[in-house]
Design a binder for these strands. Structure first.
Length: 576
DNA sequence: GCCGTTTTCGGCCCGACTGTTTTCAGTCG
């Protein structure tokens, strides 16, 4: 599954972690982390590059280039293997427990021979940490508690669940006297596909009332820490909520800082330093006389650094600072650009809303067109037949949808060999066909790739639905050579879906970036099974933005005539 | 270990909170 770049990045990250645990130069460890990130985000396969090309990657110098080359040639990195013999893998795993970092993990291993999370839990239960320097009774209790949390809960939460919690917290805090502004930041604002914790930023002159209000919310089960400027709690759902309160004058700098990502803000700080400036959550200051340059809005801070405004969804250190310097940031697709939905179900198959309800809800949302795409007959549980499909088409054609155009489509099943339901004649009757993988998830990469390529080459298939078929926290993505699949999609004029369903978000941002490099077009669909799901489109747009897409890349951001031409061009392939 | 619009050497982001300390190390984001 993983690209060679991901494997190399994982090795470099492991090396960085082991350096930190062994207490070597902290800066050295940071350099390896940075290089790992740069390689993970590099477009070319690093195992195809020579040393000179490797060293052109920012953060990769002679030493790291040699290690990558060694991995390319031998599949190993000798110095990493040596470190691994000194530090058991369980010691590194221990640093995943909240509150336990590299220093304490090493102390536990050195002094007590503790080499796994399980061993640590046993040692705490047996009272073996008593007398160990740096490990008082409070630390032992907290660690034991955090081990259980770490064992019992997923580390990432679905974006819509996090968004709901954030909205509840914000609504409560906005009602607190003295609260001037309140919003969410962090990975939620960046629209990452999954959310680790929720960052809430508030502006107020006095902070105590806000901190108290947060800790007293009914949803809060645990106060992790609480100070004058920052409070962290855990909710019933298990997600951590961090609240930061700043003066209103620092709003922009604080929002920028707490939105992150860390690599992005780190780069901003480096850029500031090179200009004789320093950036923190209170503002951008001159180093020499501490005078304030910008703080009120994010736009002010970026401008003072000589940068165009960078949308939160782009702040991942994937080249956005260079683009902002050069004025070449993309004009990102927005929810307002989305003119229609090309993947939606009704109660004819596994949807819960009727055709009429779906049409009415889509019209209410102001869509210009809607494709109804119920499941085809090879998904046996749906009991679909040709007759039912034709009857639905008749019903759909009879609906007066006002200014909205209705398209009759279907979600075909891509079988193990890459074929789809129904014959050419029947398929030709549809306005649009989505085709998706719904079974045989464990095929080899080679088989799976052939399967997708065959589907792309089918003249009746316009969109590949939820391509990796992952279900977040439940099912892994299928294994395919995505570069080969994307190349086929671009060549055949087949759009790749960005499925907006919160537990899919498929393609995700990283694959969107890769697909775009192949010249692929995209469809941001909701895959709605109910009228309320139409609102999920914002999450699909989030992934699209994170993949640097413009409205021109997204076929359902196009006017209907242009979309129809795209669909027609694909179908014309069948006569060639 | 990397890097350079003050630097090829000497820096490297920085603030908040906790716990165990008697002035700060460790962790987190």
């Amino acid at each position: 599954m993983a690209r060679a770049n991901d494997a190399v990045a994982a090795l470099l990250q492991e090396y960085a972690d082991l350096l930190a645990i062994t207490g070597s130069d902290a800066f050295k460890a940071r350099v390896y982390e940075k290089a790992a990130r740069a390689i993970a985000g590099h477009s070319a396969d690093v195992t195809t590059l020579d040393n000179n090309e490797l060293r052109k990657i920012s953060g990769v110098g002679a030493s790291i280039a040699d290690k990558v080359a060694e991995y390319r040639d031998t599949g190993r990195v000798r110095v990493l293997d040596e470190l691994r013999t000194k530090i058991p893998s369980g010691v590194r795993a221990m640093t995943d427990v909240p509150g336990l970092g590299p220093k304490k993990a090493m102390t536990l291993y050195d002094q007590l021979g503790i080499d796994s999370v399980d061993a640590l839990a046993d040692a705490i239960d047996a009272g073996r940490l008593k007398g160990l320097r740096g490990f008082g009774p409070k630390t032992a209790t907290t660690l034991r508690h955090n081990i259980e949390l770490w064992r019992s809960q997923p580390s990432r939460f679905l974006i819509d669940a996090a968004m709901g919690t954030a909205a509840d917290v914000i609504a409560a805090l906005e009602g607190v006297r003295g609260c001037r502004r309140c919003t969410y930041a962090g990975s939620l604002r960046r629209m990452k596909d999954t959310i680790g914790d929720i960052d809430i930023l508030a502006a107020a002159d006095r902070t105590d009332a806000l901190m108290k209000a947060l800790t007293e919310l009914p949803m809060v089960t645990e106060v992790i820490s609480s100070g004058e400027k920052k409070t962290s709690v855990r909710t019933k759902m298990g997600i951590q909520v961090d609240l930061r309160v700043v003066p209103l004058d620092a709003w922009g700098a604080a929002l920028l800082y707490f939105t992150g990502s860390r690599p992005h803000t780190l780069r901003l700080r480096e850029l500031a330093l090179r200009q004789g400036l320093t950036l923190n959550e209170y503002g951008l200051f001159r180093v020499d006389d501490n005078s304030l340059l910008a703080a009120k809005t994010e736009e002010d801070v970026y401008a003072a650094l000589g940068l165009d405004f960078i949308a939160p969804t782009l702040r991942e250190d994937r080249g956005e600072l260079d683009a902002a310097t050069e004025g070449t940031l993309p004009r990102l697709v927005t929810e307002r650009d989305i003119k229609g939905d090309l993947h939606a179900h009704t109660s004819l198959t596994d949807g819960v809303s009727t055709l009429d309800q779906m049409v009415a809800a889509a019209r209410e949302r102001g869509l210009k067109y809607l494709a109804i795409t119920d499941h085809a007959e090879k998904l046996p549980m749906q009991r679909m037949t040709r007759a039912k499909m034709l009857k639905q088409r008749e019903a759909l054609r009879a609906i007066d949808a006002g200014p909205m155009t209705l398209l009759h489509g279907t979600e075909l099943n891509i079988d193990a060999d890459g074929n789809v339901d129904w014959d050419a004649e029947f398929l030709a009757g549809f306005d649009i066909c989505v085709a998706s993988v719904h079974d045989h998830f464990t095929q080899s990469r080679q088989q799976m790739t052939r399967r997708f390529v065959a589907a792309c080459e089918n003249p009746f298939v316009h969109i590949i639905g939820h391509p990796t078929t992952r279900q977040i926290n439940r099912r892994q993505p299928v294994d395919a050579d995505w570069d080969a699949v994307f190349a086929a999609a671009a060549r055949t004029g087949t759009a790749m879906e960005i499925n907006s369903y919160p537990d899919r978000l498929d393609l995700n941002d990283e694959l969107v970036l890769r697909a775009k490099q192949h010249g692929v077009k995209f469809a941001i669909d909701t895959d709605s099974h109910s009228t309320v799901h139409l609102g999920f489109v914002k999450y699909g747009v989030g992934q699209a933005q994170r993949g640097w897409l413009t409205a021109d890349d997204v076929i359902n951001a196009w006017p209907l005539t242009k979309l129809r031409a795209f669909l027609r061009d694909k179908s014309h392939a069948k006569t060639k």
